[in-house]
Design a protein around this nucleic acid. Sequence first.
DNA 1: TTACCAGCTTTGCAACACAAAGTGCTCTGT
DNA 2: ACAGAGCACTTTGTGTTGCAAAGCTGGTAA
Lengths: 98, 98
Amino acid sequence: MKYAIHTLNKAFDNRVRLGVMAVLMTTDSVSFNDLKEALDLTDGNLASHVSALEKAGYVTVSKQFVGKKPNTTYTASSEGKLAFQDHLNALEKLLKGG
Amino acid sequence: MKYAIHTLNKAFDNRVRLGVMAVLMTTDSVSFNDLKEALDLTDGNLASHVSALEKAGYVTVSKQFVGKKPNTTYTASSEGKLAFQDHLNALEKLLKGG
DNA sequence: TTACCAGCTTTGCAACACAAAGTGCTCTGT
DNA sequence: ACAGAGCACTTTGTGTTGCAAAGCTGGTAA
């Protein structure tokens, strides 16, 4: 059991969730539509994945009105950032032979 | 469509396949049982994932006898190494904001 | 013959991915 | 007032995947 592939976080083993977290690690706050466009996803698909990340406590959702339009934005929680970093570290370690 | 999450290789989007390739990038040739032990997998699970990588042309399988025991070893094909590197590059680019 | 090992393959089931369609709300145009 | 459009989901349906456990095969050992 030298290679610890089981320490990879199940919450991030999907490309969409990976992409969402990658965005949120650098941009701090993104709107639903920007995220949808940045990752080239259907709205249903994005919504379900973000919802999974929210349930895990990794992203927080805030809804407000911008002008007269509803606007949902997402932010990585500090817990989410930590968990994602851990995941990336585990990944890197794995790839370097651990 | 700034973040190219769709260029990630589907063949490597699984932790087991990722682990197999990680091992084969550094060790060149591994036996079934060493791989199974290194990744802590059931034999059926390992066999199916390696078979998937074989079908994709990313690993090659060779069977011989060591003493009187059958022995199966796996090697990454050059195509597999290239594809894996591409995948890692795409991953890194994604994480760096592309 | 009985038992065992290596390496699969099959089975069965639960979880997941995704697109498409539907929902409820609000605003805009006529 | 009514139609249409946009936002952000939620639901539905379908196909795919992940996995453990069990079965299988072909060889060896006693």
